[in-house]
């Protein structure tokens, strides 16, 4: 299990804060308010860190654990921001049979994070994706918009080094 306690340093702007307050005020007294609030909070911040979840729990007078339980239940919610370098590994059929699974594993091991997570310095985030349309280059990974193909697990460290890991 990854370390969910060491989150990325949270910074919010007064505008984001104000928007969240408005969203909470708009839904607070409705039954089932938690889902729409979480969805819109994620739109505001891009993810749902402990600070945002705590604000929501306090405003709705429900346990933080209840909020966290809902956030981890639905795949649409993320606990982590996207990193400065967003890494996606294709786990589509062609890439997968060519061994992209071991590239994905290697990235998790080197970066010390799981899929969907972000390194504590905010530099790299990692996710799996389905076909990027470059099956001829399988197995493929992307760092932001740059595509790297015909990979083996041994290439991972060199690629990360290019981005200052």
């Amino acid at each position: 299990m990854s370390n969910k306690k060491a989150g990325v340093l949270f910074k919010d702007t007064p505008e984001q804060k104000k928007k969240l307050e408005e969203v909470i005020a708009a839904h607070k007294d409705q039954p089932g308010a938690l889902m729409p609030i979480l969805q819109q909070a994620q739109d505001i911040y891009g993810y749902l860190p402990i600070e945002v979840q705590t604000t929501i729990a306090e405003a709705l007078d429900i346990p933080l654990e209840e909020v966290y339980g809902v956030v981890t239940f639905y795949a649409q919610f993320s606990l982590y921001p996207k990193g400065q370098y967003k890494i996606s590994v294709c786990l589509g059929t062609a890439c997968y049979v060519k061994g992209s699974g071991s590239i994905y594993d290697k990235l998790q091991q080197v970066l010390g994070i799981g899929g969907g997570e972000c390194t504590p310095d905010g530099k790299f985030s990692l996710e799996a994706c389905r076909c990027v349309g470059a099956c001829g280059l399988a197995p493929v990974m992307m760092v932001n918009d740059e595509v790297f193909g015909k990979l083996t697990a041994d290439d991972v460290e060199d690629i990360l080094a290019k981005f200052g890991a």
Binding site: K5, G7, Q53, P63, Y68, T72
Partner: peptide, 26 residues
């Protein structure tokens, strides 16, 4: 949650990975 109003534990994740724990795996 209901007797003690603490609610410090609850179900986390879903399906096979569901487990009882506290927010942010504390």
């Amino acid at each position: 949650r209901k007797y003690q109003d603490c609610g410090v534990i609850g179900p986390i994740d879903r399906g096979f990975k569901t487990h009882i724990g506290s927010a942010f795996e504390k």
